[in-house]
Nucleic acid binder design. Sequence first.
DNA 1: CCCCTTCTTGACCAACTGGTTTAATCGCGC
DNA 2: GCGCGATTAAACCAGTTGGTCAAGAAGGGG
Lengths: 210, 210
Amino acid sequence: MSEANRKMKWQQEGAENPLNGNTALCEAALDVFSTYSFGEASLNDIIKAAGMNKGSFYYRFYDKMDLYLSLFQRLSIEKLKLFEQYDDTNTEDDFFTSIRKKAILGIRFARKEPRYTALSRRFLTEELSFRETVIDVFGGVTENVLLRMVEEAQAKGQVRHDISVQMMAEVFAILLERIDKVITPAMDDDEVLIKIDELITVLRDGTAVE
Amino acid sequence: MSEANRKMKWQQEGAENPLNGNTALCEAALDVFSTYSFGEASLNDIIKAAGMNKGSFYYRFYDKMDLYLSLFQRLSIEKLKLFEQYDDTNTEDDFFTSIRKKAILGIRFARKEPRYTALSRRFLTEELSFRETVIDVFGGVTENVLLRMVEEAQAKGQVRHDISVQMMAEVFAILLERIDKVITPAMDDDEVLIKIDELITVLRDGTAVE
DNA sequence: CCCCTTCTTGACCAACTGGTTTAATCGCGC
DNA sequence: GCGCGATTAAACCAGTTGGTCAAGAAGGGG
């Protein structure tokens, strides 16, 4: 790849993801990047695991970061595709039903591709400069949709008024982010639904005796 | 240091922490280990920042891991000292009051030494083998005290019975672990108390309208 | 003054990192 | 067969890593 600006490449519309059609590399990169931080992840290992040659890698990718961004984009698209199954803007679902449905979708994706969960959680502990580079390319994809949901729910009188929406949104965000601690891979679908309902109940009605 | 088994050293009673009296090294290590993962953290950088010589370092420490463990131990002791201020075994505090007091202590420590919070959170995303090594030396220091608290509270009829104690304990654990997302360094002590009370209220009574 | 232990110094090591380069080769359209 | 882009292999680079080592300094006790 030429000296073209990295950001440019990712803003081009027609530019195709160089990972497409190379499942071996995709798998290897996902394995390594979900296990190690960006700095610790060995590009040599990835290339070797993918049965690829270093020369061909650098023929297609600008550098290690380019591979990371390619992977990130692929996974983001896959996740987006899954979440498009449920658009709550035009339903009559109340707040907690909405949250429940979104949680189920999130868990379904996390169980299908647990390495993605590991990767995105690992991303949060990367160096600031690294995170900035990624965010600079992809933009703030993670705009806080939860805050707006809670605000709307409060306006509709579905959540309490004596607690700030920020606090409630943050509580939901934290629990959704770490939901894998409560939904383990060993559970079957029925158990998962039970656990989600328990969690929603706690968030809705609290833990104190009625 | 001799070839002595690393685990041995840490199980010896009299063995003094080689970090004691070397605040420069302690600070440098805390800076680096809280910013980078163990693998990415550069021992050379730490030594340089501490104004130390490599030879002298290896005269006192077995290896990089030895330094990490020394730091870990020092911080654990400091945290323990702080938490000894409140022992709830002989108070009449109910469950939620107990949780509240513990949260306040936790936040006080996290605000005094934010790098410790960063370090212990980073620890959770380290490689499995690394975590095992550390746990092997220090033992499961993090035994689940929350689960026992919730069980006891349920027996006393202070928390609901239609939700599993595991779920409730996990929810508390997750939120306590990420409490820094809701308590920011910019807040003064009064604001912190308000936020904690909000959080406890949510956990006790939920987010739905009464 | 010497001896001995404790500590310091900086050169040195092999291994590995991400990345480059060059030249040979493969495979497909024309 | 020719041309050309894609791919391979290998050597190579400078820089960094964690870790070693032998020589010497420091300093106190005899």
